[in-house]
């Protein structure tokens, strides 16, 4: 019987936990489960509780949870997801050999894939507005990656939005030159998405989002990591670790086949026909 601690930041990641447990369905496991419901400051204390319980392994959902779990002990293995870029945030020394008694699966969808997706969805689009939170580490990484990948494909107009209240003024930043909006990941804008799509709708600007709920909320489409699949892959890594392998030597995985998500209601409102090639591949088409 194994004892596994689960440290979760928000309920949005229930599906990742579900996938993780699926992978371990054949094992005998007792789970100790903590969800701090969005309160990052609580993570270290709960990580410590898991260490005190002497769990065999911690499954940490999100970067802050992973940081707390790794810091809480020098030996209890940690498996994490959906950490966007484990190397740049210091969780892993490298993707191949992460060290730190931890490994996991990155939730990053490659910027090249996203560029190709936008070209397929909106073949006419040339100039993209890109609102992002300049204080969000993950957003900065994605912006840098996307800029590189978009070279020769799109002209990008960066729209830094540093605080919640700045979202109220987004309409001042949107211009006629933009054909569409690409939203990199980042909690600030993802949470307040309704106010962003409120303004872009006014200008008939389609949004390509990176966060699945935003596609339900009115973006025309997006490529998003499937959290359940990420969780499942973490579960497989957990099995390797429980059978004796050192977590720090197991390469960090990445999103191989992101979900294609589309919104037909939005497409109708914007008078855009969703390409059949994407419709066929879509995991979900929201109405």
């Amino acid at each position: 019987m194994y004892k596994i601690g689960i440290l979760q930041l928000t309920q949005n990641l229930d599906t990742a936990v579900h996938g993780f447990k699926q992978a371990l369905a054949q094992e005998e496991v007792e789970y100790l489960y903590f969800n701090v419901d969005g309160t990052v400051e609580k993570l270290p204390a709960f990580a410590q509780k898991l260490v005190d319980e002497n769990v065999d392994l911690i499954f940490a959902c999100t970067t802050p949870a992973a940081k707390a779990a790794i810091a809480a002990s020098d030996h209890i293995p940690v498996v994490y997801t959906p950490v966007f870029d484990p190397v740049s945030v210091g969780l892993a020394q490298s993707m191949e050999c992460p060290g730190n008694h931890a490994t996991g699966v990155s939730g990053m969808v490659s910027a090249t894939d996203k560029v190709a997706f936008i070209e397929e969805l909106l073949p006419e689009a040339k100039t993209l507005g890109m609102p992002f939170d300049p204080n969000d580490e993950n957003a900065k990484i994605e912006v840098a990656n996307f800029k590189k990948a978009a070279e020769g494909h799109f002209t990008l107009i960066e729209l830094p939005i540093a605080s919640e209240t700045d979202i109220s003024e987004l309409s001042e930043l949107l211009t006629d030159e933009m054909d569409a909006i690409f939203m990199p990941i980042g909690k600030l804008l993802e949470d307040n998405f309704a106010s962003i799509v409120y303004y872009t709708d006014d200008l008939d600007l389609p949004i390509i989002a990176s966060h699945a709920p935003n596609i339900v909320g009115g973006a025309i489409g997006g490529l998003a990591a499937n959290h359940e699949a990420l969780g499942y892959e973490c579960g497989l890594k957990a099995i390797e670790i429980l059978s004796g392998k050192d977590a720090g030597t197991i390469p960090v995985g990445s999103v191989k086949t992101p979900d294609v998500l589309l919104n037909q209601y939005t497409a109708d409102n914007l008078d855009i026909e969703l390409p059949s090639s994407l419709v066929e591949r879509a995991k979900e088409i929201y109405n």
Binding site: S168, S171, D191, Y198
Partner: peptide
């Protein structure tokens, strides 16, 4: 506050076209 769902926006004026 567990999370925010929106931020204040400028309400639709008469210049905005109805759908």
């Amino acid at each position: 506050e567990p999370r925010f769902f929106s931020q204040a926006v400028k309400e639709a004026t008469l210049d905005v076209k109805a759908k």
